[in-house]
């Protein structure tokens, strides 16, 4: 992989990590409205996939979507403003954490129905296919949502209509407080792909290189052949389903193990330095820049203007009557 791409990937993973760790702290102080679902531990999943996307490809996120948005190139400051319900937020304060959306970078927001992005991705891919612009649509789907009918319907439709969709299942071990191994009949999401006549691959989600290599192959095939595929990424989240989740369903020492043995940032750093692809100094520069960015935007957001009350009525309809 080119050096510039490695630097970009590292910057994105570091930004997500710092953004989310600070969010964890801020949420505990009561300054964040609504619910937030943190992506800490899964950074290599979205960043690995996005390392293989072109500018006109579309990523569809989930409710655990801060990392998805940042990986696709959404501006961290405006993302944070949206999460805090501020006027300058990406959606003017109408979306919040769970639905944040940025059409300028082809990032489609999450769905409270969790699996609906899979179906919407089919339409995005259909539009791309109609334009023949070679773009692909990549819906990120939690392994819990993978059991929804709409996801299975969408996989079937994508195959029948021959659409360039790569369904990426993020298997983070838990659907809210229910274990994946129990909830997924057959245990293997990638294995379901064969039933819909598409290739399925599973890789460890803490390994940026494994994710990006698998994504490269499947996305390239989707782009060239206009056919769907499945990529399952396995990596447990470090925090709860939402902030405030006591996580009593976890096993003893589980989070300690994840942080010490399966931290994607540590694994990435060790590898790029061992291979001489990047230097410690280069990474330290990024660390410092990200630290400053996160400190700045979190300071700024607390003073940022709230949406004007008249905004309540804006945008209900695109063509009002």
């Amino acid at each position: 992989m080119e050096k510039s791409k490695l630097l970009t990937a590292y910057r994105k993973m570091r930004t997500i990590r710092d953004f989310e760790e600070r969010m964890h702290v801020e949420f505990a102080t009561g300054g964040v409205p609504g619910f937030v679902h943190l992506y800490v531990g899964q950074e290599a999943c979205a960043v690995g996939v996005c390392s293989q996307l072109e500018g006109n490809d579309t990523l569809l996120g989930t409710h655990r979507g801060h990392g998805h948005a940042l990986a696709k190139g959404v501006d961290a400051r405006r993302l944070l403003f949206e999460i805090f319900g501020r006027a300058e937020g990406l959606c003017g304060g109408n979306a919040g954490s769970c639905h944040v959306h940025d059409s300028s970078v082809r990032y489609i927001g999450a769905n409270s129905g969790v699996g609906s992005g899979a179906a919407i991705a089919c339409g995005v891919a259909l539009a791309a296919k109609t334009r023949s612009d070679g773009a692909v649509a990549v819906p990120l789907i939690g392994e819990g949502a993978a059991n929804q009918g709409v996801v299975l319907e969408a996989m079937n439709l994508a195959s029948v209509w021959k659409l360039p969709v790569v369904f990426v299942f993020e298997n983070n071990g838990y659907a809210e407080a229910t274990g994946s191994d129990w909830a997924i009949a057959g245990g293997e999401l990638w294995g379901r792909a064969a039933a819909f006549d598409m290739p399925g691959v599973a890789v460890e989600g803490h390994d940026f290189f494994a994710v990006s290599e698998a994504a490269a192959e499947l996305i390239d095939r989707a782009r060239k052949e206009s056919r769907p595929a499945v990529l399952e990424l396995r990596q447990k989240r470090f925090y709860g389903h939402f902030e405030g989740d006591a996580q009593t369903y976890r096993g003893d020492g589980e989070v300690d193990y994840l942080r010490s043995e399966r931290d994607c940032l540590t694994i990435f750093t060790d590898r790029v330095i061992a291979e001489d692809w990047l230097t410690k100094e280069e990474l330290a520069v990024i660390d410092e820049e990200v630290t400053t960015l996160i400190a700045d935007i979190y300071e700024e957001v607390k003073e940022a203007a709230l949406p004007a009350e008249s905004r309540l009525f804006d945008n209900v309809y695109a063509s009002p009557y």
């Binding site: 489609i108 609906s116 899979a118 179906a119 919407i120 991705a121 089919c122 339409g123 995005v124 891919a125 259909l126 539009a127 649509a137 009918g149 709409v150 319907e153 969408a154 079937n156 439709l157």
Partner: peptide, 11 residues
């Protein structure tokens, strides 16, 4: 569910 969602995405 799939084709209605697809229509949303296409739209």
């Amino acid at each position: 569910a799939a084709f209605m969602g697809a229509a949303v995405g296409a739209a």
